[in-house]
Simulated scan of single mutants.
Amino acid sequence: MSAFPTKIAVLLRDDLATWQRLNVTAFLVSGIAASVPETIGEPYADADGTKYLPMFGQPVLVFAGDGPLLTAAHGRALDRGLPMSVFTAELFATGNDLDNRAAVRAVARADLDLVGIAVFGPRNSVDKAFKGARLHP
């Protein structure tokens, strides 16, 4: 049994290059951090008193799956009302936040070419949303 009643989870499409997986994960979890402040712990400091930024106060689990699984997880997360960030294939061709948001806004929800999503919520709800996904190798 986990010590955390909630879960932060990322689901990546399994055909991404390594650099894409890392980039998409970083972008997706930034949405959780920015919008769900209770996920953030206290600032860090080393023994010399050097201060560091706070980070998530619980683990981030990263999963992988194919496109249809990602689409299904997206729908299940929406049905459960989970806070969610999305990354679509089109975002690899943009270079800034304004263009990123415009690229997502230009496509209907059912037609999004999802390469990753991140969610936060009660463990059970996240587990149900990500049903069928496997932990990223």
Rank of each mutant, 00 (worst) to 15 (best):
L70Q: 09
D66L: 09
F130G: 08
Q20A: 13
R109E: 14
E42C: 00
G121M: 01
G49M: 00
R105E: 14
L53C: 06
S85A: 15
Q20F: 11
G75F: 07
L91S: 02
R105T: 10
L28C: 03
E38S: 06
S35I: 08
V104L: 08
L69D: 13
V107G: 12
R105C: 07
A133V: 07
A73W: 10
D14C: 14
A108W: 09
L12P: 02
G75N: 08
H136P: 12
L82W: 00
G81T: 05
R134L: 10
L11K: 09
V115R: 02
L91G: 01
E42Q: 00
T50M: 06
A64E: 15
V107M: 14
S125Y: 14
S2E: 09
D66G: 10
G65N: 11
K128Q: 15
G65P: 06
V86P: 00
D99R: 04
I117P: 03
L28H: 05
F120S: 06
A33K: 04
N23W: 09
F130H: 11
A45C: 04
D79N: 08
H74G: 09
P43S: 02
L98C: 09
L69I: 11
E42I: 00
L11V: 11
V126T: 06
M55C: 13
P137D: 10
G49T: 02
A45M: 00
A133K: 07
I117S: 04
V36I: 12
L22H: 13
G121P: 03
V115M: 01
E90G: 06
L98S: 07
A103H: 05
G116T: 06
D113I: 04
